[in-house]
Amino acid sequence: MSIWVTRFDPPAAGPGGLLRVAVKDAIDMAGVITTAGCAAVRDRAVLATSDARCLAGVRSAGAHIVGKTTLTELCVSPAGDNTTFGTPANPVAPDRIPGGSSSGSAVAVANGEADIGLGTDTGGSVRIPAACCAIVGLKTTWGRVPTEGVWPLAPSLDTVGPMARDVAGVVTGMRLLEPDWTVASRPARVVGRLRIAGVDPAVEDVVDAALHAVGFTVREVRLPGWEQTYDALDTIILGELWRAHHTLLDADGVGEIVNGGLDAGRYITEQQLAEAMVARAAWQAEVAAALDEVDVLALPTLVASPPLLTAFAGFPLTRLTAPFNLAGVPAISMPIPSPGFPVPASLQLVGPMYGEGLLCATGLAIERALDRPPLPD
């Protein structure tokens, strides 16, 4: 199945030459339609008159955009599936999901067709495909990267972030998004180990082993409000989805899952949204307090190995990612040594607001200390 919605002539050189960038087809490019992975949107679309603001650094750096990539319809599903545009094959484990919603950008990076992939992350849509495809993905601080010209799912949660085969590549991608951004001068020293119910013990074990091997000071951390985040997240995502895209309800070319989300969203009241925002503020304060005690938080990205393409229904893909969208904080996902796993387990590090430099410095230190799991040629 296709990685690409639109493909442009590739450059002659790859790594070490012209930088190749894959752009999720939820991000406007001048002169190209944006489909948002939805037939109804594609059929109504007109050519974008300008680039999304987040592409300004890509253009000024002279990087080559090699194409616009497949995604799940309207950025909704975290599995990476799309019946209309095709589900990109996971190059690490073809029998397993590629993860979504930024599936095409992740696969393009993992199989070497792009050096940097740009995606959006509202509940895990950069980190989940990065974890499924054994690459690195960075969810940026909410509001840091401009989203004008980016197809909205839930504007109060939406972020844009880079994916690459290693942390150094994500650093390059972050500099495309924010040219003056820099990596912190030192990595984290004290890591808060967060344990959430329902995670495969084998995944927890390899995360613990990686943190121990690097030599971090590790402290156990609890976030008592974790389980209460999901109601607020559902309210915000469904309510904002409806407010942004109510004209697509029952439209020809809109899939069942998205239509069901729109239908549910129309019953979300302004009072319910306001209450969800109050819950969000309390959760943000709880996460910030935890990050006052440690430099970063550490936990897996997924509760278990990525599910099979034939059996992903019910797998809690956003269980460990979405609460950090509600908090607004940055988070990076990266593969770690995982002998015997079908796909290397993914370590998720979470930093304070605008702490992307610290996360990348820490990720670089981890890669130096560990044998990085290899990707296919």
Rank of each mutant, 00 (worst) to 15 (best):
A56T: 06
V66P: 03
V5K: 02
A264C: 14
S101F: 08
H245T: 01
W181C: 03
P78N: 06
A110D: 08
F312V: 04
T87N: 02
V214D: 02
T301F: 04
A276E: 00
R20S: 07
S105A: 15
V350Q: 11
A285K: 14
D250S: 09
E275L: 06
L153T: 05
G119K: 04
E240I: 02
T229D: 01
A232R: 11
P98D: 00
A106H: 04
G253T: 13
R193Q: 07
V199D: 05
I336R: 03
T6S: 15
F315S: 02
G253P: 07
A345V: 10
A79F: 08
P352V: 14
Q228F: 05
A110H: 05
A365I: 13
L157C: 04
L249Y: 10
I268T: 06
R222L: 13
G253Q: 10
L358W: 09
L370W: 15
E220M: 11
I366C: 14
N82M: 01
V23R: 04
L375R: 07
V21W: 04
R144F: 14
G253E: 10
G260P: 09
A131N: 02
Q271T: 09
I336C: 08
E220Y: 08
L177N: 01
L299E: 05
L238A: 05
G192E: 08
L317Y: 08
A13T: 15
R243H: 06
F315P: 08
A281P: 03
A251E: 14
A93M: 05
G119L: 02
G265E: 03
Q228H: 13
G340E: 12
A188K: 11
V46D: 07
C133P: 00
R243Y: 01
V258H: 07
P376F: 08
G86I: 07
D95Q: 12
G351Y: 13
L273T: 04
G239D: 05
G17R: 15
M334E: 10
T120F: 13
S305A: 12
R7Q: 15
L309Y: 12
R186L: 11
E293V: 12
P373M: 12
I97K: 00
P94F: 09
G328L: 09
H212E: 15
I3P: 14
A63Q: 05
W142T: 13
V206F: 06
R7Y: 11
